[in-house]
Design a protein around this nucleic acid. Structure first.
Lengths: 335, 335
DNA sequence: AGCACCTATGAAATCGTTTTCAGTGTCAAC
DNA sequence: GTTGACACTGAAAACGATTTCATAGGTGCT
């Protein structure tokens, strides 16, 4: 039925060991190597990766565990990770946790059973602290969310500074009552919140922050509440692309103008943000860099398991668009 | 080092066979089952999936091969496939081909080596015909693109009809010079083109179609050319979400208004389309349905390998928004 | 009691590779 | 002419599970 290495060996007139060596680049005479290659072609042999992994004890596979691949931020990171992994000869197993700690635990266990070489992981706030090094028998590189977890390799954005940049920009444009919407599932939300609060205080303004589920729907509902209750801030900062979209949706539904009725700024320079309304001011994260760097850290960790942990902090870029334009007093929000 | 089934057996005072049966739901007395479970906990045993797959000869894994996971259409389909696979106890290996037939061939070969149970595949036009049933030793379900491939299970949109709907809608709104932009990599582009041409003819209008690479950049470049050369159509139909975005970008860059300077309609009801300009009229594909149905077809195929091939054709829904509003004669394009 | 039959169990074979181990043959150096 | 080094090769063990096969013990029926 299926053709194994023994069949190839028989067809080539050599031993299975020689076939294995010929295919794996071991020491084999040019003559036999030729015979083996011919036999492989003739028989249509395909190696069985399960058998190979079992015997050789390395899977050439890494796990990539993120909240939700349909979030464009993770999509972009995932593509970068996959490309880097592929050039390193590794496969990637992708897992969506939906910010659910139970799913996270389940997938980590699955990774153990797959005997993966390593894992790149964007954990929820709940489980980021439980990842003491050595808990799993593979190295983990955290992305996007690291908290103060010290013993772990990680690649994150300078969230504190980035949130501050948005506040400063808004203040410079003349906005004062600036509300922040932050995700309640990740450490990222916390750090951005802290940066927001610090920058507001520095500007002598009163922070007004809300932690909500990091989803389009939650943000939309929150913003809609402002409009119906008449407590509309002058400007809002949304702590990721999904929440940003939720706010824009709510504004359109309520017939509000950006930025005249409310200015908007947020995180994640997704391609739609330049097309919505007057264009949205956002912090651009170096998504491809994050993925590539995570993969690099993982490979280096595999090389030197005992080197001290490294945390790479990347800077965000503030992309200014029309959603935070200065507005003339005549146009100023009245509410 | 790593704990195997033998260690568990020793700890439980039973044979490895009994451990395997206890874990796999085989016939084992309640007493021994309890001992085994205790031993598993005590030893921290994790099954080795490679070994299991090797011996049991089924991988419990399917492949999902798409053009590019960062295309929201495929992202959405992929999530649906993954969720369905997960509830069926299957893992998913995700592969991005970037519309490159060589990568497609490589990944299909990889799927053979992984001994996957089956594959869900969105092929390029170049390779859709080479997939005669029986070429691979796993069943394949085509999604999104099937061409006239008869022997294959497939889940596709009624592209011909959907493109026609867009034309009819535009014509009803008073547009006449309607240009179509179609992807040149997939059969989908061809079918939508054919539906467009047929509907145009039926309306007594002259079709004007272009086949280009299905990317944001290619569509943007094409539309920009119209503006610089002054050959701007009254309306444009873009054959997927990426190309639609390219056209919108070009319009914004050129300072053109939607729909006064050019009306826009397209495929894929991605969440940004409701936020761009006056909202974009699009064909909504039942993305989740496509993924779920593909998984269902695959499972049924595994059950009954010799049943005749089935092609499921799903209908699209036309979501009308401001980008195709009727325009008053005064506002009509002058070019 | 004797027989057939069923269930639970363990010993051993098996899946398809890689890797170890033990050669074999060739060649250069003394 | 012996010796050591070296490059190749094949036989067999090993990887860690599942599955087959044989057996022991019980149960029901005559």
């Amino acid at each position: 039925m299926t053709v194994s290495i023994k069949d190839v060996a028989r067809a080539a007139g050599v031993s299975p060991a020689t076939v294995s060596r010929a295919l794996g680049g071991g020491p084999v005479s040019a003559e036999l190597r030729g015979q083996v290659e011919a036999a492989v072609k003739a028989t249509g042999y395909r190696p069985n990766l399960s058998a190979r992994r079992l015997r050789s004890r390395h899977s050439q596979t890494i796990g990539l565990i993120v909240a939700d691949i349909s979030n464009p931020f993770f999509t972009a990171v995932a593509r970068a990770v996959e490309d880097a992994a592929y050039t390193a000869g590794l496969r990637v197993i992708l897992c969506n946790t939906d910010e659910n700690p139970q799913k996270e635990a389940m997938y980590l266990q699955l990774m153990e059973e797959e005997r993966v070489t390593g894992v790149i992981f964007a954990p929820t706030r709940a489980s980021v602290d439980k990842l003491a090094r050595g808990t799993y028998n593979f190295p983990i590189v955290l992305i996007d969310r690291a908290g103060r977890a010290s013993g772990q390799d990680a690649v994150v954005l300078d969230n504190f500074a980035a949130a501050g940049m948005l506040v400063e920009h808004l203040v410079a444009q003349g906005y004062h009552r600036i509300t922040g919407l932050f995700g309640n599932a990740s450490t990222t939300g916390v750090e951005r919140h802290d940066g927001y609060v610090a920058a507001m205080r520095l500007a002598g303004l009163a922070p007004a922050a809300r932690f909500i589920a990091p989803s389009i729907e939650a943000a939309e509902a929150e913003a809609r509440r402002w409009f119906t209750q008449g407590t509309v801030p002058e400007a809002v900062i949304a702590s990721n692309g999904l929440m940003l979209m939720g706010v824009v949706r709510a504004m359109r539904a309520a017939g509000k103008r950006i930025p005249q009725d409310m200015a908007i700024a947020g995180f994640d320079n997704e391609s739609w943000t330049e097309l919505a309304g007057p264009g949205l001011t956002v912090i651009e994260q170096p998504v491809a860099d994050i993925g590539r760097t995570a993969m690099k850290l993982l490979l280096e960790r595999l090389d030197t398991p005992d080197a001290p942990a490294r945390k790479v902090v990347l800077g965000g870029r503030c992309v200014v668009r029309g959603s935070t334009s200065r507005i003339s007093p005549a146009d100023a929000p009245t509410a």
